[in-house]
Design a protein around this nucleic acid. Structure first.
Length: 479
RNA sequence: GCCGUUAUCGUCUAGCCUGGUUUAGGACAUUAGAUUCUCAAUCUAAGAACCCGGGUUCAAAUCCCGGUAACGGCACCA
């Protein structure tokens, strides 16, 4: 049984888009293998804990449809799924390691450690613990233990190598002498990531550890721990880290990283997921029917292979995401699209819903808006004028002669209800008589009714507004 | 600085394992054209890449070695 997990930390505003990426891969891989996808909350850093973060992370995961099979909310047979509720476990295993001689108590103060690091950095050496507390006598330990603060450190062998196989990168080898005696249990009784992740992954029977490249360097510590405990190693797969356009690690300074941003900006979760799946992943090996880049979650789940993951960090291209989002919007069912749009435009919703229920009007106009949208939020600037009169008018070039009153006269003289043919013909005729381009007249009319030079089809817009409203708007400018 | 990883159009990528079928393919973006009441959508076309240097070979994007660069890690953060 394949079991995968993601382990977000509630230390940020919301779910990071990089976590969305990791969650997607983990979930898709689990589903492909009829396995389970677990979400575990790693809240062991109490100083960086952000209130409400956990709820927002879980909420965002749900928005993307990446709900876990096991986790803090749905529960499961391997709980609790929040690390702060598993403290006794970590303590027990840390002590087991001490007993076995693979870990030791350390009483060094943070100040001493800080100075040590500074010295080492100044000397151009890799900052590492110097092993001062490594060989304390039992008596010393006992007396210091009574005195107070201590941590437990991993006793990394002085020599030899630690290596492991990575699905994405092959065999990775590290010199033990270069691996730091990592702190496993902090003085506040909380474990560090390294201890907690190994203990939990083992206890929760995680079979595949799929995470980002940033963890590659600390994996030997984890491998050491597995070995010391006598546990079998999971399969490791270190995928790429998403990057900013300047190729640095994706950060909030340079790119929108919070899941909620994508929601606010009118992106569809399926489109974001589809785009993410394309990053750092070779799709050509997939048996995707038309070989295209747009595919559903089911297609991903059917075709994804861990080996498809590429090691190189891809730059996040918002432009391509927007294109893809537009493709998804165009393919969407109108009823669903209406609901989605109204979520962004509460003030329009009554109107929208009402109009949508009347097949002839909105259903003809939505497709026109639809092919112009890239984000759900594009609806208002594009179609807002259909619901309320524009207050600002983006006029054509100054100094041009206005023909609005003539246009108004032509339209007013037409038999009701207007047919597209009749009024188009009327305006074209007017253009011919006046020696102006028909396009210019259409533009004048467009600005008069919509307030803007760009927008959906004029004929459809007029039809949607109706004769009276069209004339009324014409009169505002034409007098 | 030390350790690790990586290297194909501006960006995402295919091809690399199993050298020749490659004038290195696709997508986004860009530019031009078609269409048109504007903007889109759509269609057509164009420009655009094998990091550098050595090998091996009849033949290298593909195999080997050496550089370089980018990224990641080096916390009582995850």
């Amino acid at each position: 049984m394949v079991r995968t997990r993601i382990a977000p930390s509630p230390t940020g505003e919301d779910l990071h888009i990089g976590n969305v990426y990791t969650a997607l891969i983990n979930r898709v891989f689990a589903k492909k293998n009829k396995g389970k996808f677990v979400v575990r909350i790693e809240d062991t850093d109490r100083s960086r804990l952000v209130l409400g973060s956990e709820e927002r992370i879980l909420g965002s995961l749900a928005w993307f449809g990446l709900e876990p099979d096991e986790g803090t909310q749905v529960g499961g047979p391997y709980g609790p799924y929040r690390q702060s509720e598993r403290l006794e476990l970590y303590k027990k295993y840390a002590l087991e390691l001490v007993e076995k001689g693979h870990a030791y108590y350390c009483f060094c103060t943070p100040q001493r450690l800080d100075e040590l690091r500074k010295e080492q950095a100044a000397a151009g050496r890799q900052p590492m613990y110097d092993g001062a507390c490594r060989n304390l006598s039992t008596a010393e330990i006992l007396s210091k233990l009574a005195a107070g603060n201590c941590v437990i450190r991993l006793k990394v062998p002085d020599s030899g190598q630690t290596s492991f196989d990575d699905v994405v990168r092959g065999k990775i080898t590290f010199e033990n002498s270069l691996i730091d005696d990592q702190i496993l249990l902090k003085s506040d009784g909380f474990p560090t990531y390294h201890l907690a992740v190994v203990v939990d992954d083992h206890l929760m029977e995680i079979t595949h550890v799929i995470r980002a490249e940033e963890w590659l360097s600390s994996t030997p510590k984890h491998v050491l721990l597995y070995n010391f405990f006598g546990w079998t190693l999971p399969v490791f797969a270190h995928g790429p880290i998403l990057r900013n356009p300047d190729r640095s690690k994706l950060s909030k300074r340079k790119n929108p990283v919070w899941a909620s941003w994508y929601k606010e900006q009118g992106f569809l979760p399926e489109a974001v997921l589809n785009y993410l799946m394309l990053l750092g992943c070779s799709i050509s090996n997939w048996s995707i029917p038309d070989g295209g880049e747009i595919f559903s979650m089911e297609v991903m789940e059917r075709n994804f292979k861990l080996e498809d993951l590429r090691p190189v960090g891809p730059a996040f291209d918002l432009k391509k995401l927007e294109w893809m989002n537009g493709e998804y919007i165009r393919k969407m069912d109108n009823a669903q699209l209406t609901i989605d749009i109204s979520n962004y435009l509460k003030e329009f919703s009554r109107n929208l819903i009402l109009q949508t229920l009347e097949p002839s009007d909105l259903q003809t106009s939505i497709p026109l808006i639809k092919e112009r949208m890239r984000r759900l939020t594009d609806f208002e600037p594009l179609a807002g004028f259909l619901f309320e009169r524009p207050s600002l008018f983006n006029h054509s070039e100054q100094g041009k002669e206005s023909h609005l009153s003539q246009i108004r006269d032509v339209l007013e003289s037409l038999a009701r209800p207007w047919s597209k043919d009749s009024w188009e013909k009327g305006i074209r005729q007017l253009a011919e008589e006046g020696g102006v381009k028909a396009g210019d007249l259409f533009m004048e009319l467009r600005v008069a009714i919509s307030g803007n030079k760009v927008g959906p089809d004029l004929f459809e817009s007029v039809k949607f507004l109706g004769e009276e409203e069209t004339l009324a708007r014409l009169k505002i400018l034409a007098g």
